[in-house]
């Protein structure tokens, strides 16, 4: 059975709903628009579904001029993209924002977006866009080819899972879950369960990808992405059989060696496996 790409997903705003794609353009930071926006608290620190599972219910559709957001209560927001450089109202202010242990420059996306997010999350919150002038570099543990950076993703620009791994997990679950719990960018079909753990380099379409390390999972996979409510699984079930020294692994962090385009249905060629 041949291995192919079965799903592609982009998450323009970190921790908000994903958008299914049929074709994904890989830019320097990963899939075009992927996690270039982020919500921060009053300390300019990232906010995610870990604290606010309801963020899963907010859709944000990007275009070259900004974001169209829709909240579950029906509110809609058009957040025009503000690039580096503040205007007279102070929109576009650039300030350091924190995502995990990284501090990078974020560009404030204006008071209206902040107002809507603060209302929805019931705490001070602002929307920021990553500065293209001060790109976020990958950590030392990543084989980052020249020019490859990352947006507000947790670490690597891309996250890959397989349908077979999810099926295996669901065989063990009392209540099957859907792939969106893991928020992958690329899902492949036609593999055996967890076959992706053994890959070193793969070719998809015209892009070569390096499989860097397992994705260590946290409480966030317990958030039902369709209800925005945190449940007690699948973290517990995964913990019974997918424990690695650093935690629980499911899926792989991936870095692309160059830009290009990948499509649903593209064959996946295994170029190299881990020794």
């Amino acid at each position: 059975m041949s291995i192919t790409v079965s799903r592609l997903t982009v998450y323009p705003v970190k921790s908000m709903a994903g958008i299914a794609l049929t074709e994904a353009e890989l830019t320097a930071t990963g899939i075009r628009h992927d996690r270039l926006w982020m919500v921060v608290d009053e300390n300019n620190r990232f906010l995610t579904q870990r604290q606010h599972p309801e963020m899963a219910l907010v859709t944000a559709v990007p275009d070259d001029d900004g974001l169209s957001m829709r909240f579950p209560d029906g509110h809609e927001l058009r957040a025009p993209l503000i690039r580096d450089g503040a205007d007279r109202k102070g929109n576009g202010r650039v300030y350091p924002v924190t995502v995990w242990n990284d501090t990078v420059d974020g560009i404030d996306q204006g008071d209206e977006a902040a107002r809507q997010l603060t209302r929805f999350l019931q705490r001070p919150a602002r929307l920021v866009y990553i500065s293209s002038e001060h790109p976020r570099r990958l950590g030392d543990s990543y084989p980052a080819p020249a020019g490859i950076t990352v947006g507000f993703a947790d670490s690597a620009p891309l996250h890959l899972t397989s349908e077979a791994s999810l099926s295996d997990l669901n065989q063990r679950m009392e209540r099957p879950i859907s792939m969106d719990r893991f928020r992958p960018n690329i899902v492949v079909s036609g593999t055996t369960a967890y076959e992706e753990d053994h890959w070193q380099r793969v070719q998809i379409g015209d892009v070569t990808l390096v499989v860097v390390k397992p994705c260590i999972r946290c409480q966030m996979i317990n958030v039902n992405q369709q209800t925005g409510i945190k449940e007690i699984d699948p973290l517990e079930t995964l913990g019974t059989y997918r424990s690695v020294p650093r935690g629980i692994g499911f899926g792989q962090k991936v870095v692309h060696e160059h830009t290009g385009t990948i499509r649903v249905g593209d064959p996946v060629a295994i170029l190299e496996v881990k020794s």
């Binding site: 958008i19 074709e23 209540r175 992405q225």
Partner: peptide
């Protein structure tokens, strides 16, 4: 790039059978 807005990255999650966790109340 073609965009399909919404939570369409996975199917609905329906219980397969009564969950043991629910039976014990956990």
């Amino acid at each position: 790039m073609s965009l399909v807005p919404g939570n369409e990255t996975g199917g609905r999650e329906e219980p397969r059978h009564a969950a043991a966790a629910t039976e014990t109340g956990r």
